[in-house]
Simulated assay, not measured.
Amino acid sequence: MLVLTRKQGEKILIGDDIVITVLDVRGDSIRIGVDAPRGVRIQRDEVLRAVTEANIAASLAGQGDDDAEARLKATLALLPTAPPAE
């Protein structure tokens, strides 16, 4: 993992077409802007995890509990993994 220190207004460039800009710094939180091509998916980790967990719970709802662990493992095996870092 690359760790950088940036100030408000400074940018980070990823490849030729992704720009991350530090918009605001307040206490222990920052606001960032991400400028990327339309085809690049940008997602917050906590939102993606919550949706995944809700989908798993919904898929298991109403089914018998006798093989719930096996179904959960099968469902988790189908989840997308993070793309390799370039």
Rank of each mutant, 00 (worst) to 15 (best):
M1H: 09
L2F: 15
V3E: 11
V3W: 15
V3G: 09
L4D: 13
G9R: 02
G9A: 03
G9P: 02
G9K: 02
E10A: 01
E10L: 01
K11M: 14
K11V: 14
K11N: 14
K11C: 14
I12F: 10
L13N: 08
L13I: 14
L13S: 14
L13T: 13
L13Q: 15
I14C: 08
D16S: 09
D17R: 04
I18C: 12
I18K: 08
I18V: 12
V19K: 07
V19M: 12
I20M: 02
T21S: 02
T21P: 00
T21F: 00
T21W: 00
V22P: 01
L23I: 07
L23T: 05
L23Q: 05
G27C: 03
G27P: 02
D28H: 09
D28W: 06
S29L: 15
S29F: 13
S29R: 15
I30K: 13
I30C: 12
I30A: 10
R31D: 08
I32F: 13
I32K: 13
I32E: 13
G33M: 12
G33K: 10
D35G: 05
D35T: 03
A36W: 03
P37F: 02
P37N: 01
P37T: 02
R38L: 00
R38H: 00
R38M: 00
G39H: 13
R41Y: 03
R41A: 04
I42Y: 09
Q43E: 09
Q43V: 05
Q43K: 06
Q43H: 03
R44M: 13
D45I: 10
D45V: 12
D45P: 00
V47F: 06
V47Y: 05
V47S: 04
V47W: 03
V47D: 11
L48F: 09
L48W: 07
L48E: 12
R49N: 07
R49M: 06
R49L: 11
A50F: 01
A50Q: 01
V51S: 01
V51K: 01
T52R: 02
T52I: 04
E53K: 00
E53F: 00
A54E: 13
A54K: 04
N55Q: 11
I56G: 00
A57K: 13
A57L: 13
A58K: 10
S59V: 06
S59I: 09
S59Q: 08
L60V: 14
L60H: 12
A61H: 15
A61R: 14
G62H: 12
G62A: 06
Q63S: 14
Q63I: 11
G64E: 15
D66V: 06
D66P: 00
D67Y: 12
D67S: 09
A68K: 15
A68E: 14
E69T: 04
E69H: 06
A70R: 08
A70F: 05
A70S: 08
A70T: 06
A70M: 06
R71E: 11
L72Y: 06
L72V: 14
L72H: 09
K73I: 07
K73S: 01
A74W: 10
A74H: 07
A74L: 05
L76V: 05
A77N: 03
A77V: 08
A77H: 04
A77F: 11
L78Q: 14
L79C: 11
L79Y: 12
L79F: 15
P80K: 02
T81Q: 08
T81D: 05
A82S: 10
A82E: 11
P83I: 04
P83F: 04
P83W: 02
P84E: 03
A85I: 05
A85T: 05
E86D: 14
